[in-house]
Design a protein around this nucleic acid. Structure first.
Length: 210
DNA sequence: CAAGAGATCATCT
DNA sequence: GATGATCTCTTGA
């Protein structure tokens, strides 16, 4: 058994949290089942001035979650069909969060296959909407704490070291509306990992070749 | 394998 | 009334 990451971990600079989440284990408890995966891709949404962040539009019903304490889950519905999972960062009233974009399946793989309606291991959790489906994550988890002993969704405090040379950066995916913020290198992923999300070669050519 | 279209609905204007 | 921190499906090489 490992401890959960606590509030102190999340109440720090968003970019740092996003980087350090790589290699950590995301754990979902449903009934007595455990479903888990290693985080391999994240994005930082760093504050109200970040035009890619929902919070740049101010506090609304949806974004109110981002203004809460670090260590709280921010889950929202996108494109009418999929959920995205974020962990709120920094202190209360400063809206920022890390989007968890992909994990590598570890435990509960059969359950993931059922939720995702596919047998293809490499298509279970390699994208923000896919991993939410695979781990049974929806808006009922929005605003809940990741840091309590009875949390049904949390991140293990294992000392997993991802060597610096294995951590790659790029601009964030799907935020072309964000003006000067669309190209900021705030996406982090583990080099050569099979479970990093698939992106368009045309839109993101710099991610190919190496 | 790669590219493009369409799905689909809560949220905000 | 428009849009989106996405995904799946279809088509074509």
């Amino acid at each position: 058994m490992y401890n959960r990451l606590n509030k102190d971990f999340f109440q720090r600079k968003t970019e740092q949290v996003a980087k350090e989440l790589l290699g950590k284990i995301l754990v979902r408890k449903i009934d007595n089942e455990i479903i888990s995966g290693m985080i391999v891709e994240t994005e930082a949404y760093v504050g109200p001035h970040d035009l890619a962040s929902h919070a740049s539009k101010g506090k609304t019903n949806r974004t109110a979650t981002m203004f809460l304490d670090g260590g709280i889950w921010y889950v929202y519905l996108i494109y009418g069909s999929y959920h995205c999972l974020n962990i709120v960062t920094e202190e209360k009233d400063y809206p920022a969060a890390v989007l968890i974009r992909a994990v590598e399946p570890l435990e509960g793989i059969e359950e993931m296959k059922k939720f995702r309606k596919t047998e293809n291991l490499s298509n279970l959790t390699n994208g923000p909407g896919k991993l939410c489906q695979a781990l049974g994550i929806d808006k009922s988890l929005n605003c809940t704490l990741a840091t309590e002993n009875n949390s049904k969704l949390y991140i293990e405090n294992r000392k997993i070291i991802v060597p610096a040379r294995e951590i790659k950066k790029s601009k964030r995916i799907g935020v072309d509306y964000a003006g000067i913020w669309k190209d900021k290198p705030l996406r982090f992923y583990i080099k050569n990992n099979t479970y990093v999300s698939k992106v368009s070669k045309k839109l993101y050519p710099f991610l190919f070749g190496n």
